[in-house]
Simulated assay, not measured.
Amino acid sequence: MPTQKILVVENEKKIALDIKKRLQKMGYFVYEIISSGEEAIKKVEETNPNLVLVDLC
């Protein structure tokens, strides 16, 4: 089964790392953490992830 690519968009570093750690424990591959919406849009266009988790205020 191919690895599912997950992009995490979170502006708080500590929370983003916790999300990544929890996803990895469940066997998922978080290939990048992005801290801004604009950067996330560019990255999605470039890498075509399977899932984008977004939590920005």
Rank of each mutant, 00 (worst) to 15 (best):
M1E: 14
M1Q: 11
T3R: 02
T3Q: 08
Q4C: 05
Q4Y: 13
Q4G: 13
K5A: 08
K5D: 09
K5N: 13
K5C: 02
K5Y: 03
I6L: 11
I6E: 10
I6P: 00
I6K: 03
L7M: 15
L7Q: 11
L7G: 12
V8L: 12
V8Q: 04
V8R: 07
V9Q: 02
V9N: 02
V9I: 08
E10R: 06
N11C: 08
N11T: 10
E12H: 15
K13V: 10
K14S: 10
K14P: 00
K14W: 03
I15W: 13
I15F: 09
I15L: 09
I15C: 04
A16G: 15
A16H: 01
A16K: 02
D18R: 04
D18H: 06
I19V: 15
I19A: 07
I19H: 06
K20V: 05
K20G: 03
K20T: 02
K20S: 12
K21R: 14
R22C: 07
R22M: 14
R22N: 07
R22L: 14
R22H: 11
R22P: 01
L23T: 08
Q24N: 10
K25C: 01
M26P: 02
M26A: 15
G27S: 12
G27N: 07
G27I: 08
Y28A: 03
Y28M: 06
F29Q: 10
F29A: 07
F29K: 05
F29S: 13
V30D: 09
Y31L: 04
Y31S: 11
Y31Q: 09
E32R: 06
E32C: 06
E32V: 01
I33L: 14
I33R: 02
S35I: 09
S36D: 11
S36W: 03
S36A: 04
S36L: 06
G37P: 09
E38G: 14
E38R: 03
E38K: 07
A40L: 05
K43V: 15
K43M: 09
V44I: 15
V44R: 00
E45S: 13
E45R: 13
E45W: 01
E45I: 14
E46M: 12
E46S: 15
T47I: 11
T47E: 14
T47L: 13
N48E: 14
P49V: 09
N50R: 06
L51D: 03
V52A: 10
V52I: 03
V52T: 15
V52H: 04
L53W: 03
L53H: 02
V54Y: 10
C57G: 15
